[in-house]
Structure formats: structure tokens, C-alpha cells
Amino acid sequence: MTDIDTALRESLGRLAQPGDPSGVASAINAQADALATGAAGAGAGGAAASGGAFAGWIPAVVIAVLALGAGAYVGVQSTGGGSSAAYAPMTVSPNGAIPAASCPGGAAVTDLDPGARVLAVARTDSGDYLAVRDPAVLSHVVWVPASDATADPGTNVSDLPVKDCSEASAAPSPSVTPAPHHTTKPTTKPTTKPTTKPTTKPTTTPKPVDKPPTLTVGAWSPKIIVGSGGYGGTGCTQAVSTTIKIHATDDGTVKVTGKVTPNAKIVGNTLTLVSHSGSSWAFKYIANSKGPTSVPTATIKFTAKDNAGHLVTRTTYVKVIPTNMCPYTP
């Protein structure tokens, strides 16, 4: 019966028509931005609401494409209050991680990955610094030197609004407030209205709001490894393990954990925390691929949890070559 499974996998592999990933990430970011700000007129009802918004955002996508065609990809979107906010897609310099600060010229609070795609939402008056949405936590705005990011062709950075540190932090974000989880709903409705109003105001000072942690998967390689055993075979030049570096910060304490999602064709997943210092964690991943017909992808999810219970997750991927496919060239 194993032959049946193999034959089915091979046949479906031949029948499969993969999607072209070119330019897809930028398009998705633009759609997400439109959804989050309501520019498309579609509610951000969540992905699970199947089909409901399928046609709803199409006008916004068409608008974005037209803007690209006209060579002026600085989107303008209504913020609901009559004002407008411009944004510009950019690529961070590929030459090393770029320190990003909470204010122009300030101390770095996080690093942007080399070559990361970001959305600029404001600039300083001089144009020396740009406010960009933190790819790790899209609700955060961080400042980077303008010289460390390259605008997409047709983008005019000078069209971005001039803002200062506090104004930019309030820029509309494509990331909505994290949805509450594990919240219990009241099971019964109150049957009577309160008959008396409170006569005194609360005297206690509200506790400061705890911010969720930030979690970034840093630049790491290799993203394809060889299975650590199994079917035999020689000739692969790829490593048998990979070390994934994580950066996490919080206004309190934060802990990072990693988890490998089961894949039917990968066995013996081992994800080990090998180092932790300050805001940096490093996890080593080793696996064995069942093979023998394809190179499966392992899904690895990292979770940062702070002492207030906020959770932030990031997912990344590693391909595991079955050793019987060696030598293998991606």
C-alpha cells in the first residue's frame, strides 16, 4: 500500500500547477493595508469568513495596480476623518541588519532584516529619516535613515507626510489590535437595569498598558538542509542542521519558544534552544526526511510570551532533503 501512496504523491505532483510567487508579497501587503484601513470598503472580518470579502477588495487592488502603472506608487487612503495618509513600499538595504529607532536618530529598539520589505508612512522635514512599519509588529512604527532603504520604482518619497516622532507613531496601521483570545463571554443577559448611578468616581490610577512583545526572525541560513539519516545516499553538499536566530523584546520580560508543526514526510524533528542572551535567541533544527520523492518543508513557529500573557508568533520554513535524493540542487 505504500506504493499506492508514493504513486499518488508522484501523480499529484505532476498534476500540480504551482503559483508564481513573483511580486506576490507586495501585492498581499497592499491588500492587507486596504483591508485594515477599510479603504476597500470591505470589513476586516478575518480570513475564516470564507468568501465574504472575495470581491470586496478587488476595487482596491485595481486602484493599486493603476497607481503602479502610472508610476506613482505612493498610495493615498482615507483614514475616515477626512485627512489622508500616504505610504510608500521600500526595500531595506541588503548590506546587514539596519538598526531602527523609536524616534529619528534615537537609540535602536530593533533591527530590520537585510533586504526586508517595509512600508514607509512618514518622513522627517529634512528627509534624512523615514518612519516605517516594523515588519515584525505592524502596529509599531520605527525610524530608519533614508539612506538605508530604497524606494520602489515610481515611488516618490518626498510625497510622504512630514511628521515628528509622536505623530508618526499614531499613523494608521495595517495591523489591527490583536484579537482577544480566551475571552469568556457572558452566558446570560442582565434582566434588569441598574437603578442607581455610581455617586463617586474611581480614585485609583489605571495601570500602565503593557505592550505586546516584538518578535523577529533574523537573517539566517541555510534554509534547506539534508536529512540526518534514513535512506542512505551521498553527494549532498548542504548542511544537516540550521541555526535560526530570533530577536525578541518587551517592556517587561519575554520568553521565546519554538515548535515544529508535524509534516507527514518529515520524521525526527529536533528543535533545540542553543543560546539566549538578552533579546537574542538561537534555535538549532535537525530533521530526517522520509523521502523518497520530494523535498518536504518543515514549518517552524516561534512564540514570544511576555509576563502579561501577550503572545506574538512568527513562522518560518526549512526544506529537508531526503538523503536518497543526494546530490540535490534546489
Partner: peptide, 26 residues
């Protein structure tokens, strides 16, 4: 108690690694 969960997507990695196969599956 309310616990907030924020799922962040490493979009570039997903598109490069998983998107082609997901489209094929759909």
C-alpha cells in the same frame, strides 16, 4: 483573564516557500 494573541506572518518566507504549493493545492 484575557490573553492577547498576535499571529505575525513572515510573509516573504511563506511566499517563497509555501505559496506555490498552496496555489497548486487550491
Amino acid at each position: 483573564m484575557t490573553v492577547e494573541v498576535a499571529t505575525r506572518i513572515d510573509l516573504e518566507a511563506f511566499v517563497a516557500s509555501e505559496y506555490p504549493r498552496v496555489v497548486a493545492a487550491v
